Simulated scan of single mutants.
Amino acid sequence: MTFEEFKEGVTKAGAKAPNLGKSLKLSLDEGTIFIDMTNDGGAVVTEDDKEADTVVTTDVDTLDQLRTGKLNPMMAMMGGKVKIKGDMGLAMKLQSLLS
């Protein structure tokens, strides 16, 4: 999966995301995806590199494996494939937000 394909999927999933009053930044090798979930009517997804409540650092392939359930989130963190800074509760909701 390419960065653009993944971003398109995040944008579609974001349209259904609830207003959590938080923001999430996916800092990927291929680029940045900023998900602003502070608005009613779905999340706003951009490539802005702004401050966020939670920052997830990884790559597109790892995120896709997490999204599809092929990779366990805890194993990804323990194996160093995913690094998280900020609100861990929001990070734990990432898989359901992207599905």
Score class of each variant (00 low, 15 high):
M1G: 13
T2D: 10
T2I: 13
T2Y: 01
T2N: 08
T2R: 14
E5A: 12
E5W: 01
E5N: 13
E8H: 07
V10N: 03
K12T: 09
A13I: 06
P18M: 09
N19I: 08
L20V: 06
G21Q: 05
S23V: 14
S23H: 01
L24I: 10
L24T: 05
L24Y: 02
L24N: 01
S27V: 11
G31C: 14
T32S: 14
M37K: 00
N39A: 11
D40E: 14
D40P: 00
G41R: 06
G42S: 10
V44Y: 06
V45L: 07
T46W: 08
E51C: 03
A52T: 02
D53F: 03
T54V: 09
V55L: 01
V56I: 10
V56W: 00
T57W: 01
V60G: 01
V60W: 01
D61E: 15
T62R: 04
L63E: 02
Q65D: 13
Q65S: 12
T68Q: 07
M74Q: 15
A76F: 06
M77P: 01
G79L: 09
K83A: 12
K85R: 07
K85P: 00
L90Q: 10
L90M: 14
A91K: 03
A91M: 08
A91P: 11
K93N: 06
Q95D: 09
S96D: 15
L97M: 11
